[in-house]
Nucleic acid binder design. Sequence first.
RNA 1: GGGGAGAUGCCGGAGUGGUCAAACGGACCAGACUGUAAAUCUGGCGCCUUCGGGCUGCGUAGGUUCGAUCCCUACUCUCCCCA
Length: 377
Amino acid sequence: MTMKKTKAETGFSVTKSREGLRLGYMETPHGGLETPVFMPVGTQGSVKTFTPMELEELGSKIILGNTYHLVVRPGLDVIEKMGGLHQFISWPGAILTDSGGYQVFSLAKLRKVTEEGAVFNSHFDGRQIFFTPENVVEMQEKFGSDIMMPLDECPPYIDDRSVVKKAMERTLVWARRSRKARRDFRLALFGIIQGGHFDELRNESLERTVEMEFDGYALGGLSVGEPAPLMYEMVEKFAPRMPWDQPRYLMGVGMPIDILRAVACGIDMFDCVIPTRYGRNGSAITRGGLLVVRNGLYSEDPKPLDERCSCKVCLRFSRAYIRHLLNAEEILGPRLVSYHNLHFFLNLLADIRQHIQAGTFTQFHKDFSSGYDAAQR
RNA sequence: GGGGAGAUGCCGGAGUGGUCAAACGGACCAGACUGUAAAUCUGGCGCCUUCGGGCUGCGUAGGUUCGAUCCCUACUCUCCCCA
């Protein structure tokens, strides 16, 4: 008698540091990676402004893709015919794909959610696209995503408990269906915990999702407009209750200090558009907080974006030059700031891992926070 | 020398008697951005303000009118055509 497979072959092991923090190692079909980890977001098959070579150079082991966006364009067929997502975008590392659950939130005006799934009027050409828990898993298997996220309903930050409850329950039903739909057990499938800022809902979502036995668990529905303290509260309460021996992913977070706080609560995986979006919009993330290089203040500033940074951009270029590039709408401007920002995030996570290992994370966290302008988050 | 057109805020450029501190762009200044419809979006952009409003203002100087960026006169300057 053969045991029915319920879990991916993707391996994950955690050790507990002296300070009680998590240090993990995850194996995927596209290489291993240490956690806590930051995953750059490459929605449409590209981490905006970066070549895969640059991502490798920065030490990124895993990036995100987005099922909704990739299906809208170039379409599932193209990616399949090109040999899967990794080959198509020429990325040798791991890929986690989000399901389109976030688009249920961000493209709320263009979609309709039913028990069956979510119908989107494509933002690109208006064409209707139907997402169900089943076909979303199927699509991600065709992509060959190392980590698949199930379709979920990500509600906005809202005080109406019944709305959040409904989304949470629907996410549970969809989770069960997603789990049943998987065929390729080399790929991991995570469960997503919803419930907004309501303790009982979060709790129920967590317990019932964990019962379904996924390969990892994610806290979803946070950083969707709620006050930061509320997000911290949720992470502080629920991260520790997620299974110890499996990856814990806080979706869409966040700013450096958000990440530090979440790591302290036991989160392993992060993704966020901040480094790349802020980069394109002219803000550098630095040890001192946010630095809006675009501002006139820096027009004659010879200093690097971050005086304590050793990235290629900071070793070579002045704020004045970068501001000029941004101002003149030279494409190099957004590229340079994005490069610095992503280096900052990846480096921060490397520092975090190192300090956890050394048993000095708490001090590092404290030092970082005091040097970082709180007003800039 | 003759004829014509025009001068508006940092720049371009609407406006042709009151609803104009003056449309719309651009530049400039600032803010936002957290599983990316974002190389995007929002706000400010004469001076002062207790944010109610007050003051100065559309080449210069006069004039008409209750009222002028808008009409008249002169001047200054710019551009175009003819000689």
